[in-house]
């Protein structure tokens, strides 16, 4: 394929960055006491995006040799990549500013948070549209992919922020039912969206069917089933869903913590694998 793991990392980190910012905004609004999660989200957002952009630049070799060329990135508003750059141009400074204010223990103004919320959604969605507009690849060129990427981005952002909360501020974290519920629901939604996308892509064209087949039964099947579906979706859904919807009790045991860490990490692994698999398994439309 054209792109490899570098771009998968970029797409994942950009999405997770947006998700982390949104999580922090949510936590700030709903759980004002939970400063650890809020701070974590605000710090993770610019750091992840920064690393992601670095990956992007490392992959863009011609630009790497001539960094000034990256300024040309704003030239073509007709390109989703340029639109993404606009979004990042808003989101990155906002996320950075919020992080700096947080470090300086200064309040983050409402307008800044709202700007961040809007631009974060845009960044998360853009990573999906980036691939979605490529007509040559049926696996990408469908309306579901951007939704899938947004859901996955929220899930990943939530997971990485939760991971920090779980480890540094477990007592409060275990009380944040909305966060935990949201997380379970996101996993469920992602499963449904992924399933829907594969069905639609598979039925749309031979190349799409071949792409889906390579995921389900072909060369990517182990990564798809083991990494994305089991570790990234089913396990977190079960691990978080069991205490939240079945036992409805606050867990305190070390075992439960380890299991939760596995669940949250699984989401992150799954989030990365989703992008990697979508990139790798895409087959172009046959023209002969």
């Amino acid at each position: 394929m054209v792109w490899g793991s570098m771009i998968a990392w970029y797409l994942f980190l950009a999405g997770a960055s947006a998700g982390a910012f949104l999580t922090s905004a949510f936590v700030e609004a709903k759980y004002p006491d939970s400063t650890v999660m809020r701070i974590a989200g605000r710090l993770i957002a610019p750091v992840f995006l920064g690393i992601g952009l670095l990956m992007l630049m490392l992959d863009a070799e011609a630009g790497l040799h001539n960094p000034l060329r990256f300024f040309y990135l704003i030239m073509n508003p007709g390109s989703v990549m340029t639109l993404g750059v606009y979004c990042i141009c808003v989101f990155f400074p906002v996320a950075l500013a919020a992080a700096v204010l947080e470090v300086l223990k200064r309040p983050v103004p409402k307008w800044l948070t709202w700007t961040g919320i809007v631009s974060a959604f845009c960044v998360a969605a853009y990573t999906g549209f980036l691939l979605g507009v490529v007509k040559a690849c049926p696996l990408w060129n469908n309306a579901i992919l951007p939704i899938l990427f947004v859901v996955s981005a929220l899930s990943a952002g939530l997971a990485v922020t939760s991971l920090v909360g779980l480890i540094l501020d477990r007592k409060r974290f275990e009380q944040m039912w909305l966060v935990k519920k949201g997380h379970v629901i996101l996993s469920a939604v992602e499963m449904v969206v992924l399933f829907t996308m594969l069905v639609i892509v598979s039925s749309g064209s031979i190349e799409g069917a071949a792409s889906v087949q390579s995921l389900l039964t072909g060369e990517y099947a182990p990564m798809f089933w083991g990494g994305l579906v089991l570790l990234g979706l089913v396990a977190p859904f079960a691990i978080e869903g069991y205490p939240v919807f079945i036992t409805r009790k606050v867990e305190t045991s070390t075992t439960s913590m380890v299991v939760s860490v596995i669940g949250e990490s699984g989401v992150l692994v799954g989030g990365f694998l989703l992008r990697l698999l979508v990139i790798m398994a895409a087959l172009p439309v046959m023209y002969l």
């Binding site: 863009a60 011609a62 060329r69 690849c137």
Partner: peptide, 29 residues
């Protein structure tokens, strides 16, 4: 225009014919 190309490979992905290539020396597509 090789002076503007950053080598992001978006064009490679978008080309239905798969005929755009990365020049190893410069990274330009």
């Amino acid at each position: 225009d090789e002076n503007k190309c950053i080598g992001c490979k978006y064009c490679m992905a978008a080309c239905p014919y798969g005929v755009r290539i990365a020049i190893k020396e410069t990274g330009v597509i």
